[in-house]
């Protein structure tokens, strides 16, 4: 299983970063969102730390949808999905591989979103870095576990992005709230005394959707019905 997962990760990374248009589309959309939100600030004003964190996570979520869409579209070109399904390794290896590839891509996208948020929305990273980093990783994990599961949902469907967004966003709400809650703390340095609760929630979300991904992916990712 591990070998297939690694093969999928390597192939997806090669195809997206080295041979494809990579993250360009997803990055542009995310940056555009941050920029558009920066327009809501009047002269001399700046968005509250909470709003800035929300914008950051919104950009990440949109970027995520495009990315998983792209990752699963790779198999649709010449129907290689069927080839993957014939592998002796469990099908979940594909889910895991795509989730990890998505995780790495999302983290790299966030390396750009974060400075963009700081610059355009006039924030500084003054909060304690520990919890912020932990929540960043936890939230990304949950987003990728769910994203990798839902990415398989639209297999063989043309209007994938819109479809994914409709289902993805509401399901993601708890995680986005957690990310926003702690993100606000990272931006203004005020501890809202809820951080341990948010960390717990994000961990619970990750656990539930990692398990759901493992259990349900095999149903979704199948030959033609």
């Amino acid at each position: 299983m591990l070998r297939m997962t690694l093969a999928v990760i390597r192939k997806d990374m090669t195809l997206t970063l080295l041979r494809g248009n990579g993250l360009v589309q997803a990055l542009l959309l995310g940056l555009l969102l941050i920029f558009v939100f920066s327009l809501s600030q009047g002269v001399g004003e700046s968005l509250s730390a909470r709003s800035a964190a929300a914008v950051f996570w919104l950009s990440s979520a949109f970027c995520q949808i495009l990315m998983f869409n792209q990752l699963y579209a790779l198999e649709e070109v010449n129907n290689s999905r069927l080839g993957l399904l014939l592998s002796p390794a469990p099908i979940q290896a594909i889910w895991l591989g795509k989730a990890i590839a998505g995780f790495v891509l999302l983290l790299s996208a966030q390396c750009i979103f974060l400075p963009a948020t700081v610059i355009f929305l006039g924030k500084s990273l003054s909060g304690p870095p520990g919890p912020s980093l932990v929540i960043l990783l936890l939230t990304d994990t949950g987003m990728c576990a769910l994203g990798s599961l839902l990415g398989a949902l639209a297999q063989g469907q043309t209007a994938r992005e819109a479809l994914l967004g409709i289902v993805f966003f509401p399901l993601l709400t708890p995680l986005l709230l957690a990310g926003t809650g702690i993100g606000a703390q990272a931006f203004d340095g005020i501890d809202p005394d809820g951080s341990s609760a948010w960390l717990g929630l994000a961990s619970a979300f990750d656990a539930i959707f990692l398990a759901a991904g493992l259990l349900l992916f095999a149903f979704l990712y199948a030959g033609d019905e």
Binding site: M4, N78, N79
Partner: peptide, 24 residues
């Protein structure tokens, strides 16, 4: 089958190496 299972952006060798790994 008719579908070639080929990733257009990978070289022939890379394609083959990928399937080798997938089948262990």
């Amino acid at each position: 089958a008719h579908a070639t299972f080929v990733y257009p952006a990978l070289t022939a060798l890379e394609n083959l190496a990928f399937w080798r790994d997938v089948h262990g």
